[in-house]
Design a protein around this nucleic acid. Structure first.
Lengths: 256, 256
DNA sequence: CGGAAATTTGAGATCACTCAATTGCGGTGG
DNA sequence: CCACCGCAATTGAGTGATCTCAAATTTCCG
């Protein structure tokens, strides 16, 4: 695995001292961070990266030399079986930290791909241990993020294992909407929604055709609207009840 | 949440200085640990707990005041929907660390129940942060364990989302066998297998009846045997190929 | 030995899948 | 400006895997 295999780091978003000025840190969704921690994060950071919609962020069977925090855009983690069946494990958006699993498993974890154009902050994997050592608090925070991500996968597992098609779709729409809302992506009740039906099918463990039919049914019931890549939830309570999924207000989380 | 709600800690397995003498630490599956780390772990430890087969280790909607490492026996993490449908998220056995998710989510994560009789080492949740602070290496190890657990849930999600019934069963049998083998539970090719078909169905997202029929089919093909609560894999290659699941030798992991 | 729980089997219903064709839409070249 | 292309979305039809219901049968346990 060589660094050169990766595109050169682009200019980090936000100028020369980006972590200070990072727009994400102004959101209520994220916990404040001491100047000292910020400095450590900054030194851990090696640059930014931009991946076009549809592009690959981490190859499925390769170990990325970097860890990332998503700055903007939607991505997803996935695994494929040898005959091509694909399962999306979870979706990622601003503030999500990725690449950690690779640290502890010898490759063969999961791939990450961009749905929309994605901007990422890149961190040096080599210095991860150093980070834990220098600032135990940041280590604790990373554990926090890992636990939070696992909780999301747990939820998805319940969905594919025990919910029927309508319930799955209802739950996913609410889940994605709420998460986007949380990081300030809502505009007049609409949220950017760059997913196609194949993404949804692969996330829910359904076929493309059945996903389409289910999506249409809920749309005809007036529960949600999708227009030109934007999503609006018309009947949040109905969708939550249908999916038996009640997202409680999420506590602020750390931002690395 | 009061401590009194929990049964009093029983005598820790292994005597008065158990972490030193812990039988698990002699296994190749676990990384060695410096005397200093061991001392910190020891001080973090508040006792042991024993839960009878079928008993509850962590209630689904309550925050456990303790974290645990499994010392012996099989357990599982699960979630239930409001109408009672249950999904098993993952199985736990010796060396697995549990209760971490609760640290970062306000309850409402998952329940943990014992399949066989289970013995656990209990740790004080209050002192978790202190542990990260005092021994960053142990914090790093806990993150490692969290990432490893997430990887298992990822695998299960692929299973319920994209594998058919036979593939699911094949993959689960191999998975459980290999994990038990890894921590020294194999005896003459057999491994203790205290699960009933409802457990398997709930883990795989199948109905009980269909699980039974699938299990029988694979058994009639001579791929495995179950006898008096013990499992033997007769055709590992066939099961691995069927499940498209090839467990690679797992690296030694930390043991907290 | 008796009773409860777990397993097994059969039968019919249903949800989700596959195959196949059509429609809608944005982009592109003439 | 329009015909044409490719991809995503949509719809229909028939199939099949899995589910539910129901009833044995076996195993476990007191």
């Amino acid at each position: 695995m060589k660094y050169e295999d990766y595109p050169a780091a682009a200019a980090p978003p936000g100028g020369s001292n980006p972590c200070d000025k990072c727009a994400l840190r102004r959101l209520e969704a994220f916990l404040p961070c001491s100047p000292e921690e910020l400095k450590t994060i900054q030194s851990f950071r090696v640059g930014a990266r931009r991946v076009a919609a549809g592009g690959s962020i981490i190859e499925e069977h390769r170990r990325s030399p970097q860890l990332f925090t998503i700055y903007s855009g939607w991505a997803f983690r996935y695994k494929t079986l040898s005959d091509g069946r694909r399962q999306i494990l979870s979706f990622l958006l601003a503030g999500d930290f990725l690449g950690l699993q690779d640290e502890f498993a010898d490759g063969h974890t999961h791939g990450v791909a961009a749905v929309s154009d994605v901007t990422l902050c890149a961190f040096s994997r080599d210095r991860l241990w150093e980070l834990f050592h220098a600032q135990p608090k940041l280590g604790y925070d990373i554990t926090w993020l890992a636990a939070r991500e696992e909780k999301m996968v747990d939820d998805n597992l319940v969905t594919t294992g025990r919910r029927n098609a309508s319930e799955r779709v209802a739950m996913l729409l609410m889940h994605l909407f709420r998460r986007a809302q949380r990081v300030g992506m809502e505009r007049d009740g609409w949220v950017e929604f760059p997913f196609n039906q194949q993404h949804i099918a692969d996330a829910l463990g359904l076929s493309l055709v059945h996903t389409n039919k289910t999506l249409r049914r809920l749309q005809r019931l007036g529960l949600y609207k999708i227009d030109a890549g934007w999503l609006r939830i018309m009947e949040p309570h109905a969708l939550e009840a249908l999916g038996d999924y009640f997202e409680r207000p999420i506590r602020p989380t750390p931002l690395i």
